[in-house]
Design a protein around this nucleic acid. Structure first.
Lengths: 150, 150
DNA sequence: TCTAGATTATTGCGTTTGCAACTATTGTCA
DNA sequence: TGACAATAGTTGCAAACGCAATAATCTAGA
């Protein structure tokens, strides 16, 4: 029998919102949003990325990300480049300042995660991550609303 | 060693966004958002609720919820009442139309969940839910930003 | 080569959101 | 009882968001 408050989507959202709120508060003094942090952390991980790839990774609309990256660029945390051999795409990279900031913030993310999963074993955490990845891959990406094969 | 794309907050957000997108698309033809659905499903579960309690359950700001419930009330899906013995609070209830709509949509939520966890055992799903509840309770609720014990 | 289509990012625009301020009501305690 | 604090909800306002339209570039086929 279905109960909203026992359903996976609901519990997922509730935990996700809560953890994002806590992290948002921690990085607010640096005038960063959670999405901004994810962009920075992603670039630290991959060194560089196009806007579209970043949007996929960060789970936000590309138009939102375009403006968000614009803000980060204005603050000299990232650079935007259109390669000569491909004038469509934009390559985003961390600046030294951006890298320094990211390195300073990552420990906060680590600590937050530790707090969140404090009473779970390594196996439980691994199983959780596996389940989260599975659910993501079990569901279709929404491209542009109801535009299907057309 | 920390990797954004292997961290729990990131995976949590990614799965949550994806599942919400899919469900949003399914209920879009009824002009409902996911938060609206959660309000309706919550009222179906509890019969009635104050605005503040609803906000807690649905994980949205009370100001947002105030407007959202106003919209639902305009569509005659819920009713709002200020009890005579307490003029501060607002009691929200489903109307018959609201209940009918909710009953029609709940199977969609069930099916979505089934799709999301399709390759997991009952035990795995139970462990997932447990982990999601734990993380929620391991983290502090954010009241009003940095207002602490003041 | 030239044109039609696909890809990638940006911008316009209306909607939604959250914070802060405000209103209204209730609770407390001197 | 009377005043001050606490609670509950609403509204103003600015920021953030997503969709749709647009611009710019690249790709592929005749």
């Amino acid at each position: 029998m279905y109960k909203l408050t026992d359903s996976v989507p609901y519990l997922l959202n509730r935990a996700g919102v809560r953890i994002a709120e806590v992290f948002a508060q921690r990085i607010a003094e640096d005038n960063l949003s959670v999405a901004m942090y994810r962009v920075l952390a992603m670039l630290k991980e991959r060194r560089e990325s196009t806007l579209g790839d970043l949007a996929d990774v960060v789970s936000v609309e590309i138009s939102t990300l375009s403006r968000l990256v614009g803000t980060l660029a204005k603050r000299k945390l990232v650079s935007r480049t259109r390669p000569e051999d491909n004038g469509r795409i934009v390559i985003v990279r961390l600046t030294p300042q951006g890298e320094a900031l990211t390195e300073r913030l990552m420990p906060l993310a680590v600590e937050l995660e530790r707090t969140a999963v404090q009473d779970m074993s390594d196996e439980e955490v691994a199983a959780l991550k596996k389940a989260l990845r599975r659910m993501h891959s079990n569901l279709p990406a929404i491209s542009g609303k109801g535009k299907v094969a057309g």
